[in-house]
């Protein structure tokens, strides 16, 4: 038996993904309706944003376009959780009905195997919205453009996305311990909406909470500063990739521990 490295898993994921997309095409109605739903969600987000901030030139020292940049950043960084980890939403159902047991018998990583089952294609619509917003805000603010900037942006976006993934993993895994964990997952899901505001609007106590206890500020605010305000990047911004990786690792451990503890329901 060969060792199962990253390449093994990547190959398996791509194959599952390809098959999954093929079969999704046969449910066109569902695909279209879900995509429209996703577009609706994004449009409603923009409308709310516009209604709130259209009449104010700045908010707490943040210009309209800087706010928009944050918004775009948060949209992009919450896309991976939507696309690749959507099966977390079914975890509770699977555990509750005992179906989760069927994932436990494969000779590959359980977490990987479980998450690989679902790829949520409608997240891509959100990605498009997010990138569009980022570019628009980038141009309007007049930020310089260079390959280095693009590279920084990519790295920080990717690691920022790990924070939301980590939060969702941990929340989903709570179903291994408590019965009605839907509320936990739902609560964490709402964090996505709070990520788009600059953390400076909060009082120091809540700034602390949203940085260290519920690290929402690492989803968009801290990582985006590296590009948005390159002259005054706080230390926490530079640390945000590490934070993302660390959180992801911890959440993975929690998830796996829960799954191992899991014993199926009776019978």
């Amino acid at each position: 038996m060969q060792k199962k490295g990253i390449r093994f898993y990547l190959r398996i994921y791509c194959k599952i993904l390809a098959q999954d997309l093929k079969s999704k095409m046969s449910y066109r109605a569902d695909f279209i309706i879900s995509t429209v739903g996703m577009i609706f969600t994004n449009i409603s987000g923009f409308v709310s944003f516009w209604i709130l901030f259209r009449s104010f030139p700045s908010l707490n020292g943040w210009s309209y376009y800087e706010m928009l940049f944050l918004y775009g950043f948060s949209l992009v960084s919450i896309t991976p959780v939507q696309c690749f980890f959507d099966n977390n939403w079914s975890l509770r159902q699977n555990v509750y009905s005992g179906d989760f047991i069927k994932y436990c018998f494969r000779p590959i990583n359980l977490f990987f195997y479980y998450q690989s089952e679902v790829f949520d294609i409608k997240g891509l619509g959100q990605l498009a919205f997010g990138i569009g917003t980022l570019i628009y805000a980038w141009v309007k603010i007049g930020l310089p453009f260079s390959v280095l900037m693009l590279l920084k942006m990519t790295v920080f976006l990717l690691t920022a996305s790990l924070v939301m993934i980590a939060l969702q993993n941990a929340a989903a895994a709570s179903c291994f311990w408590i019965e009605n964990s839907f509320y936990v997952l739902d609560l964490v899901c709402r964090f996505k909406d709070y990520a788009k505001y600059p953390i400076t609007i909060f009082s120091p106590v809540f700034r602390f909470i949203f940085t260290f206890l519920m690290p929402i500020a690492f989803i968009a605010y801290y990582p985006s500063l590296v590009v948005l305000r390159p002259d005054a990047v706080p230390l926490l911004s530079w640390l945000s990739p590490l934070v993302g990786i660390a959180f992801f690792f911890v959440s993975y451990k929690i998830w796996m521990r829960g799954a191992m503890k899991y014993s199926g329901t009776g019978s």
Partner: peptide, 23 residues
Amino acid sequence: NRTKNAQEIGVVFGQRSQLWWAL
């Protein structure tokens, strides 16, 4: 050693298909 063991066994549950539903 769950994964190593999994390589050596096969499991079928009468009512829970382990196959990919849509494929």
